[in-house]
Write a protein that binds this DNA or RNA. Structure first.
Length: 716
DNA sequence: GTACATACAGTTTTT
DNA sequence: CTGTATGTAC
């Protein structure tokens, strides 16, 4: 019997896909076909009868990855994925907690806070407890609580010897109490609560451990300690864990990712040998050689060397610009040149270390009239107007949600300020009730009393209107009765916010369709109101309804946000000491190595062309900073690099050159061929008209200056 | 209670 | 330079 789905796999991929019973660690290099291996492995397990679909659990970090895996599986013709669990760590934990809320000690209609909601909740708590916010800034308290939870610790199990730590632990305990009172769960809580549930409840643990005989984990190098404990717990019934990761691409240690899990996994699961996927299907040789050479400077690697069957390709172009503006102009002109050569803008990316760097780039691109989209902007469900609407909806779904009430009690403005709010909080505290219940319990006199009473009537009206309505209508009622629609309609400058609110109604409608049509009833626990489900969805998948930018646009992104993407051409800007590696990383243990991995990730995004640039002068925080070339540039083999000067930057742009010398189609970065020297790449241009000369790197034949009038050069 | 002014800090980020 | 957060005047 032929197994067509295995066709075309290389030997290592095949070994991974068909790995025998037991746990496996796959070291999957960038561009090595990792997602294909994961999905084909699942297909193989089902095809060979090693597991039914319902016995498979696949875990990813992002919704995007989970979606892609699901889509690829559905595209593999005869596979039924019904009963299979595919999702993010948080999404899967959410599902488990919805199914077993009671056993987990949560209210049936618990809600999920995103990080911003959590921070607001902590600020509210600190204020209520009169905590000195100089000594205990909300952000630090949040970090303390989240790191504790991500290490599997509760306030009670923290033994702080120092008074400072003890106080933090007290705040942690008070925060958890507040969450319990209001029926709220934060992101790390989803994981910790699930872990505790499965630890304490042997029946449930046995059930799930027996059900999931195959657990597949994507981006394993990004797991934190709690996630690894979670996996061990679920695998305690003898499941085979198929972990796919790349220690060289670990760039999230700063948020708790622990690559040590890769070592612990080998020990805990008795891994015999690691399967390494080193053949790269994305980049040309020079790019891979540069990436390999760079990452060799790191210590303690599991060890891996990317290779390709394709040729070396073009040299990597390095450009030293006098200033950040010159750097941006160089990039803009080179992009225009590539576009003129026929490279689609959507296949080009400009990457940088920190978001602030996008400014000068955007400026130059705007001037050059090059369309672009900036990755990782504000996401749909995180927009101010959407957050406001969601807060009203949260109040409808759960009157106990004090955070939601505080957010909207005076938005749109209705004359309820800090003073009135403090009184309301006092009343609520005295009676031990929620803020929304205290609205009608206060003195009820004077201007503020009337405003509170009016607000209470608004909320009651909203709840009544939503009583029997379908979700999209509930959203419409809330937008109207809250006054949000009217508020934004009245402002000309905020017309787009009104549009976004209309989009929220559409999102709700789309969600209902998906929710009711869910193939797996387990996805939609019986009796969970669509509104509660929608609110959870909004917290867990904030980027879901991200507006797609123009299709024909250049991508601007941080190196972090570009992970997992690929482009024909990549520009890496700001390769300066202090920026990349970032100065903040120099003090951290392993900081520079993480920066090096980040650059490794960035380099391996490029398929054919790679440009590296830095500025000798950079405007930063309103001051000029003098930059030195990044140490990482010196770690790249010089034979892979070609230096392009700044003089010819203007000559790069065919639109500006065309005006002066319409006949010159040559520009830096262009591939050319010469009858005697073979193929090469232009690395410099000089002069114009009859004097025009170009410097070409012919690889083996060396670097030559050629006078265009005589050299029989042709585009290649 | 709201509007403006001044001070201040300023990596990377998904759920 | 820029957005945020707090403080002061109406």
């Amino acid at each position: 019997m032929t197994s067509s789905y295995l066709a075309g796999l290389n030997p290592e991929q095949l070994a991974a896909v068909t790995a025998p019973q037991g746990s496996t660690l796959i070291l999957a290099g960038a561009g090595s076909g990792k997602t294909r291996v994961l999905t084909t492995r699942i297909a193989h397990l089902i095809h060979t009868g090693q597991a039914p679909a319902r016995g498979i659990l696949a875990v990813t970090f992002t919704n995007k990855a989970a979606k892609e895996m699901t889509a690829r599986l559905q595209a593999m013709a005869p596979i039924h994925i019904g009963g299979m669990w595919i999702g993010t760590f948080h999404g899967l934990c959410h599902r488990l907690l919805r199914a077993h809320a009671l056993e987990a000690g949560l209210p049936a209609l618990f809600q999920i806070m995103d990080s911003a909601d959590q921070l607001a909740a902590i600020k509210r708590l600190l204020k209520a407890l009169n905590v000195d916010d100089e000594r205990y800034p909300a952000k630090e308290v949040q970090h303390f609580i989240n790191s504790a939870k991500e290490s599997g610790l509760r306030a009670g199990s923290l033994d702080g010897a120092q008074p400072f730590e003890r106080r933090l632990a007290e705040l942690f305990a008070a925060y958890d109490e507040q969450c319990a009172r209001e029926g709220l769960v934060d992101f790390p809580e989803l994981l910790l609560r699930t872990h505790e549930l499965l630890t304490r409840n042997e029946i449930l643990r046995a059930h799930y451990a027996a059900r999931f005989q195959h657990i597949l984990v994507d981006e394993f190098q990004d797991t934190n300690r709690l996630q690894y404990q979670w996996l061990r717990l679920l695998a305690s019934g003898g499941a085979s864990v198929f972990a796919v990761g790349d220690d060289d691409q670990s760039i999230y240690a700063f948020r708790g990712a622990y690559t040590g899990n890769m070592h612990e996994f080998q020990r805990d699961f008795g891994i015999q040998g690691i399967i390494k996927l080193e053949q790269n299907y994305r980049s040309q040789g020079n790019i891979l050689d540069a990436a390999n050479a760079l990452i060799r400077h790191n210590t303690g690697r599991l060890g891996k060397e990317l290779w390709t069957g394709r040729g070396p390709g073009s040299p990597i172009i390095v450009h030293a610009a006098p200033s950040d503006q010159d750097e941006a102009a160089f990039i803009a002109q080179a992009v225009a040149g590539l576009a003129a050569e026929g490279v689609p803008l959507s296949d080009i990316a400009v990457l940088y270390r920190s978001n602030a760097q996008s400014r000068s780039l955007e400026h130059a691109l705007f001037n050059a009239a090059i369309p672009y989209r900036v990755y990782g902007g504000l996401r749909f469900f995180e927009r101010q107007e959407i957050k406001h609407a969601l807060a009203y909806l949260r109040l409808v779904a759960n009157p106990q949600d004090n955070g939601a009430l505080e957010r909207v009690i005076n938005f749109p403005p209705r004359g309820i300020g800090a003073r009135t709010l403090a009184q309301l909080a006092d009343t609520a505290a005295q009676h031990g009730i929620a803020l929304s219940d205290a609205l009608t319990r206060g003195p009820g006199v004077g201007k503020s009393g009337a405003a509170l009473a009016q607000f209470a009537r608004t909320l009651a009206e909203m709840r009544a209107a939503c009583q029997a309505a379908a979700l999209p209508e509930q959203v419409e009622h809330v937008l109207r009765l809250s006054g949000l629609s009217a508020h934004y309609a009245a402002s000309r400058s905020e017309a787009d916010r009104l549009e976004n609110l209309a989009e929220l109604v559409n999102a709700a409608a789309a969600f209902v369709d998906e929710y009711t049509a869910a193939a797996d009833p387990g996805l939609a626990p019986v009796g969970l109101p669509p509104l509660t489900a929608f609110l959870s969805h909004a917290s867990l998948e904030a980027g879901e309804y991200q507006a797609e930018g123009a299709a024909q646009a250049l991508s601007l992104s941080t190196a972090h946000a570009a992970k997992g993407l690929e482009f024909h051409t990549v520009f890496l800007s700001g390769l300066e000491e202090g920026l990349f590696p970032h100065e903040h990383s120099l003090n951290d243990r392993g900081g520079v190595e993480e920066e090096r991995r980040l650059l490794y990730v960035a380099i391996t995004r490029a398929k054919e062309r790679l440009f590296l640039s830095y500025a000798q002068n950079r405007m930063l925080h309103g001051q000029v900073r003098y930059g030195l070339a990044s140490r990482f540039l010196r770690e790249l083999p010089s034979e892979l690099l070609a230096h392009a000067g700044q003089r010819e930057a203007a000559a790069l742009d065919p639109r500006t050159t065309r005006e002066r010398e319409p006949s010159s189609p040559w520009h830096v970065g262009q591939n050319v061929s010469h009858p005697k020297f073979g193929t090469g790449i232009i690395i410099d241009c000089e002069g114009r008209g009859q004097d025009a000369r170009v410097q070409v790197n012919f690889g083996a034949s060396g670097v030559k200056w050629l006078v265009l009038e005589y050299a029989r050069l042709s585009p290649a």
